[in-house]
Design a binder for these strands. Structure first.
Length: 107
DNA sequence: CGGCTGACTCTGG
DNA sequence: TCCAGAGCCAGCC
């Protein structure tokens, strides 16, 4: 599927990658950015922010976290997000960080 | 076409 | 562990 290059908004490409993240795993912005290619970590974050538009509610943006292993979201959704990740089987530590050794998306 | 905003990452202290 | 500064680009009005 990733062989399909779309010239649509770069955001669509990012959503596509995020959708490929398997359950119980998480990916960092830089990780997704690299898969998209030519995209930077910021673009991923900005792209996900655009999701609020409701264009792709199916995108598991919650599985995308920052390089610190924590949720970068500003809004109250961060609490919700953590709950969702726990539902996926991901555990948080005392600092609200995720254990990359086991949960980082390894393709 | 110009300017503002935004959910990042890295390095150093 | 926390904080600050710099680099970077795509949408939207």
């Amino acid at each position: 599927m990733n062989t399909r290059e779309q010239t649509s908004p770069l955001y669509t490409q990012i959503y596509n990658i995020v959708c490929q993240i398997p359950p119980g795993k998480v990916a960092t912005y830089g990780q997704v950015a690299k898969l998209v290619g030519g995209c930077t970590a910021r673009m991923v974050g900005y792209a996900l922010s655009a999701l609020k538009d409701g264009r792709d509610p199916n995108v598991p943006w919650q599985r995308v976290i920052n390089a610190q292993g924590r949720i970068s979201m500003h809004g109250v959704g961060s609490s919700i997000q953590r709950m969702i990740l726990e539902e996926e089987g991901i555990e948080f530590d005392q600092t609200d960080s995720i254990d990359f050794r086991k949960y980082l998306w390894d393709f």
